[in-house]
Design a protein around this nucleic acid. Structure first.
Lengths: 234, 234
DNA sequence: TTGACACGGATTGTTAACAATCGTTTTACT
DNA sequence: AGTAAAACGATTGTTAACAATCCGTGTCAA
């Protein structure tokens, strides 16, 4: 279970995981907007798989709250409402500060290296104003903190929460440029490097609250789908 | 997304969820031991569904780490190893104390009522020495604390963690009677009722550590594959 | 013009047949 | 007898055809 299927080189499980990962990434970097329809045929053609695997992938995505399956209508990228947003942020504020704290306690040199490299990538992306890359990396930082903790369960959980956060931001983001003032990530990393557990935890909580405060639930939700063919597998 | 399928009275989604829920429950109360094979035909007959739904349910269970799918071999109830156990307990210790703390802060009368009723059920089951019921209720208490918090995401997460804990206990439980000294649940509830956030959180952490300490990773694991094969000598 | 109704195309849901794989048993050979 | 190869049975994986449902369109009548 821990190491799942090392020798499954062409197995169906990996196929489905690839599809799921790809769609996760697309959602995380807001290349797939809420409400976008993901028809079975689209998935089949994009990834060169049969209908069965496409449907299984969509089922997995639905079980993770990334897409919504409607009977006889198909799969759509999920449209979180305010209640969903509250849930996601509450969960993140429950989980992430203590995760960052743990990282500050027990991270090793290699972990620090990984996070530093990531921060550099973020800076680079921000300089070149590559919006999608900025968004993707910004979310991935949080997943990476879980990854370096070495806990696969928490990593998966964070991945789901971060991806759903992307959808929430796509729905309710105020769009103000302040949205991504991500020197906060750098400060968090500094606190981790300084082994300052309290500060790492506190900065993480504040960071999450900043993201939440940038949401605007009063305005009509942006939810209109642009037809997307960005999924083509290679 | 929030309101998911109000009118799906006989939909396939509900069918699969029913199967998944049933197997979750069976695992949680240790009616399904690790390594148990869950063949498609078994599921089909047990639940009166077609092979498709059975396979989809198994896929969902696999994505939650409750069963393991092996290529061309079928689905088996998962056999967590020590690393899995560490992950699960680490995750629980990250999540549950702060959840209980939040409950102590913000639980309402109805929530307290729910928890009190549950504690009574636990007492009753312990008096009548109904082992499966004791185990089931004991795990369910933790899920219930998440439920009364009103956060569906955390509830699902806890449900998964608790179920996997059941598998871990089935694999590595020392079997000593001390295993289920569940006045601890009662104490936690008392702390919640007293709005004693610190104490509720601390008791929860200690409770989880007690469960963990009752594990024994040195002995040969029950349901070890080799053992099983040896047993069928006759 | 507008509304209701019915039809047609497209998409999803289901079933059943087929293919591939694994474990076991049988068989053949030393 | 013992070992190894081959055939069998059972189970899973995949595909394709079929059924059911939904959505848009067109027609007709008020």
């Amino acid at each position: 279970m821990a190491v799942r299927h090392i020798h499954d080189t062409k197995s169906s499980l990996n196929d489905e995981h690839k599809i799921v990962d790809r769609i996760y990434s697309a959602v995380m970097q807001q290349a797939l907007a809420p409400m976008t329809k993901l028809s079975e045929s689209t998935i089949c053609e994009s990834f060169g798989v049969g209908r069965m695997k496409a449907r299984r992938a969509l089922l997995l995505l639905a079980s993770r709250g990334i897409v919504e399956l409607r009977s006889n209508r198909g799969a759509f990228v999920a449209c979180p409402d305010q209640k969903d947003a509250d849930e996601v942020f509450e969960a993140r504020i429950h989980i992430e500060p203590s995760l960052t704290a743990k990282a500050a306690e027990s991270i090793d040199e290699q972990g620090l290296e990984t996070l530093n490299e990531h921060i550099n990538k973020e800076k680079q992306a921000r300089q070149s104003e590559n919006r999608q890359e900025i968004i993707r990396l910004s979310g991935e930082f949080h997943v990476l903190v879980a990854t370096v903790s070495g806990n696969a369960f928490l990593t998966r959980t964070l991945r789901e929460l971060v991806t759903r956060t992307s959808l929430i931001v796509a729905m309710f983001g105020s769009g103000r440029p302040s949205c991504c003032r991500d020197d906060e990530h750098e400060q968090i990393l500094e606190a981790i490097e300084a082994r300052n557990v309290k500060r790492a935890s506190k900065l993480t909580r504040e960071h999450l609250e900043h993201i939440r405060l940038d949401l605007d639930f009063t305005r009509p939700h942006k939810a209109e789908p642009d037809l997307v063919n960005l999924l083509r597998a290679d």
